[in-house]
């Protein structure tokens, strides 16, 4: 014991150093890496698993970083040290394409995998309600027009906005600004609802300032940023029947016994109303593939093939089981040809 201790310590230290001195493995990679949206995550992981089970390639590694964070990593450069695929719950922005190009990621393949519906759901214990984008915007905007001028949101109860709505305090649990779900919620619910309120255009004539005013969510406690953990929101909604939660269609679908989605302008949230474009709060989902990595990292083409196959995104595909709302057949086929052929994204 007495003399052996330092010997063991020294050898362990040397061992650790020898581990630390082998970073060369970053230079080659035989495993696809994807980053990005937490909404697309369940779909990409399902495809990755099915892809891995074919036995020809290693199962891809998928990280859930949020759309913005994922595209930032994706656009950081070309080479094995950077991810091959970015999952996105919104379309890539011009600024992000430019960022990509500046770092050498000049060709990107875009694939629209289907739709995700955003649900405004409350506990089954509450009475069913029908909301609209206008009501949502009035309930959650930081400033709303009163007598022609924008003032700090005075609405405390849903019935303040529309007397037919319940006499309950406005409380909406939703994702934080880093989340793609929040981006889509801002664009689909807040901006669209705001556009329908004519007084806003009069009060704020400048278009950019108006857009900002439309998408600014109140910070007085009516909107609660509940983090990216949707299961936590489900629990909180069960505890508080008067609150609404903002989340993806797949969560609602899995929790239909405890949650009920509010109708939007009278339209129920179902796979059919989303694909038909009737339900307002639905959005397309994308994956972006680094074209330069195809042929370098093994299996990228095959992975896209699996992602666009009928057994994944077809009407009975396994992604549909996971809550994805598929595109109509014709569009699906077009998307497949484009993606497998690695047609570069044009902006």
């Amino acid at each position: 014991m007495t003399t052996r201790t330092p010997v063991i310590a020294a050898s362990a230290f040397a061992l650790a150093l020898s581990f630390a001195a082998t970073p060369a493995s970053a230079q080659s990679r035989d495993q696809i890496r994807a980053v990005g949206s937490s909404t697309v995550f369940p779909f990409t992981t399902a495809v990755a698993e099915a892809f891995g089970k074919t036995g020809k390639f290693k199962t891809p590694v998928i990280e859930s970083t949020g759309t913005g964070g994922g595209l930032k990593l994706f656009c950081a450069g070309v080479g094995p040290g950077h991810p091959d695929i970015a999952n996105a719950s919104r379309r890539i922005k011009k600024s992000e394409v430019d960022q990509c190009a500046a770092n050498g990621v000049t060709t990107i393949t875009e694939l629209k995998i289907g739709y995700d519906g955003i649900a405004l759901a409350s506990s089954k214990k509450a009475a069913p309600v029908s909301l609209s984008t206008i009501v949502l915007w009035k309930a959650l905007a930081k400033e709303v027009p009163v007598n022609g001028a924008l003032v700090a949101n005075p609405y405390k109860l849903w019935s303040d906005i529309d007397p037919t709505l319940p006499k309950a305090a406005i409380e909406v649990l939703g994702p934080p600004p880093t989340s793609g779900t929040r981006d889509t919620f801002n664009e689909l619910a807040m901006l669209e609802g705001c556009k329908k309120v004519a007084e806003v255009a009069k009060a704020v004539p400048d278009e950019k300032a108006r857009e900002r005013a439309c998408m600014t969510i109140r910070e007085d406690g009516a909107y609660v940023e509940a983090g990216e953990n949707d299961n936590l929101i489900v629990q909180k909604l069960t505890a508080n029947p008067n609150a609404f939660g903002v989340f993806g269609y797949s969560y609602l679908d899995q929790n239909r016994d405890t949650l009920r989605a509010a109708k939007m302008d009278g339209v129920e949230l179902t796979a059919e109303t989303v694909a038909a474009g009737q339900y307002e709060l639905a959005r397309p989902l994308y994956i972006y593939v680094k074209t330069a990595h195809a042929g370098v990292i093994p299996g990228i083409r095959e992975f896209i093939g699996e992602y666009t196959s009928e057994r994944a995104v077809g009407e009975d595909g396994y992604l549909v089981d996971k809550g994805l709302i598929p595109e109509p057949k014709a569009l699906r086929d077009a998307a497949r040809t484009q993606a497998v052929g690695l047609t570069p994204l044009q902006f």
């Binding site: 369940p42 990755a48 590694v61 998928i62 990280e63 859930s64 953990n229 949707d230 299961n231 809550g323």
Partner: peptide, 28 residues
């Protein structure tokens, strides 16, 4: 991250127990 293959070496992609718990807690 979502990692299916059991790691075999120090440079293989891997996750750890508490992370696995976190990821499962977040699954629908």
């Amino acid at each position: 991250a979502f990692i299916v293959d059991v790691p075999h070496g120090l440079t293989d992609s891997a996750t750890v127990l508490p992370v696995q718990i976190y990821m499962w807690a977040d699954s629908p």
